[in-house]
Design a protein around this nucleic acid. Structure first.
Lengths: 231, 231
DNA sequence: GTCGTCCAAAGGTATGACTTAATCAACCCG
DNA sequence: CGGGTTGATTAAGTCATACCTTTGGACGAC
């Protein structure tokens, strides 16, 4: 999902630098300077700039240069940008934003999934809940993370809403970040695992209200734990 | 927010064509062909392709060409792409997706706004609700639309969550599309206007639960009306 | 002090040559 | 005859350069 070619190299360098605030809003980059700094041709620089431009990270104006736009204008839903911010200095802020988004979206998705999921998806959720129980008890955080991410991605997918479905990858990034940075207990809380089981069963039974309620408990719990972990 | 220069011209032509399905997933475009078709240089074509690529609309592979990716891989949150789809053949599907998204996000945003809004925002919401009452009664759909969009944008902004805030522009696009295509009653329903007033008052009073409930009523109502209007 | 003109700086576009990688097919080996 | 390896071919990727276009700011006239 990442990069391609030389412009990708520039992106991988400039993008995170801007996203982390290291290059402040209002700064001006000149194309010629970038050519020298990265030792590439104008073509390459321009393509990289175009991509930053399409994320609303920068704006290019004649006679001025490539100016970094204020943070408030970024395309904050862009998955690449989210990844950069999660990897950089304002990971806390990004995690909080995404946490609120999850609280809003995932319960709704669970409710829809109870209505729209196909049989395979209902079965898969049950199986994933079981895996989470087992790997959670065993303290195998890697495997737990994998199944947790799969679980949420499956629910989002099963909602039948393409926009919800696309948040699967983002949620996975959140969960991974949480695990990698020790922002969650070393043994997943029992109650969280039980709630996942409850969501799976409610979706299997077509019980939208219960699925929604249980999922809301999961994501609000996650948000509270996150806030606590971030002091 | 749109376009800039010659690459913008290509984008404005290719983007909507892909977004509407006119150019199907799996199709292959060759750069040289595009050069001729639009009578521009390679530089320009490549930059346009880069931008389509960063929306995940296409992928460029050596020895093959620029292939249009399946719809399921598009960056469906990209505002430009949303605009293209709203303007094109699958406006109905896009409106439905966005409708569900609103149902998920706006109630949560209203709840947060009741806690985080500043005084100006609380005042502005009250004033906008008043305007909606007046222009709604007068049947001035244009003015009503403007205030309606402002209202929702302000709530999203006041939530204090940058991701919610960014959905303001998208919601406005939805509302505008709804009005322009006669998908709403010629006189806004009284109950909807009353609910907006209720949201404004709850946010002014810092009553998160009420704000959330009233906003949920607004957006679920809007979604139902949309579904009805789309048969 | 204000307005208008002019110039230079920086991005935007065009071109053509060259490099790189991947597909397809021919070919060789088993 | 089948399968894997190699090589030719094709289209994207990169580079260097020249030229065009816009525009911010300096400079001078009124």
């Amino acid at each position: 999902m990442d990069i391609q070619g030389l412009p990708g190299r520039l992106l991988a360098d400039l993008g995170p630098a801007i996203a982390s605030g290291e290059i402040a809003g209002g700064s001006v980059l000149r194309i010629e300077e970038l050519e020298e700094r990265f030792d590439v041709s104008r073509t390459v620089v321009r393509e990289a700039v175009r991509m930053l431009e399409s994320m609303q990270l920068v704006a290019s104006r004649r006679r001025v240069g490539v100016t970094v736009r204020p943070k408030s204008e970024w395309d904050v839903f862009n998955p690449t940008l989210i990844a950069w911010r999660l990897a950089g200095a304002d990971r806390p802020a990004q995690l909080r934003s995404l946490g609120s988004l999850r609280v809003a979206v995932e319960p709704a998705a669970a409710g829809l999934a109870a209505v729209h999921a196909d049989d395979d998806q209902r079965r898969a959720l049950g199986a994933l809940a079981t895996e989470m129980t087992m790997t959670g008890r065993a303290g195998d955080l890697d495997a737990f993370l994998r199944h947790d991410a799969d679980f949420h991605a499956t629910v989002l997918q099963a909602s039948g809403n393409e926009m919800f479905a696309h948040l699967g990858a983002t949620v996975e990034a959140v969960l991974r970040g949480r695990t990698e940075h020790r922002l969650m207990p070393h043994h997943p809380e029992d109650y969280a695992v039980r709630l996942h089981r409850e969501v799976a069963e409610a979706i299997a039974a077509g019980d939208a209200a219960t699925a929604e309620r249980a999922m809301r408990a999961i994501v609000t719990g996650a948000l509270e734990e996150l806030d606590a972990a971030l002091e």
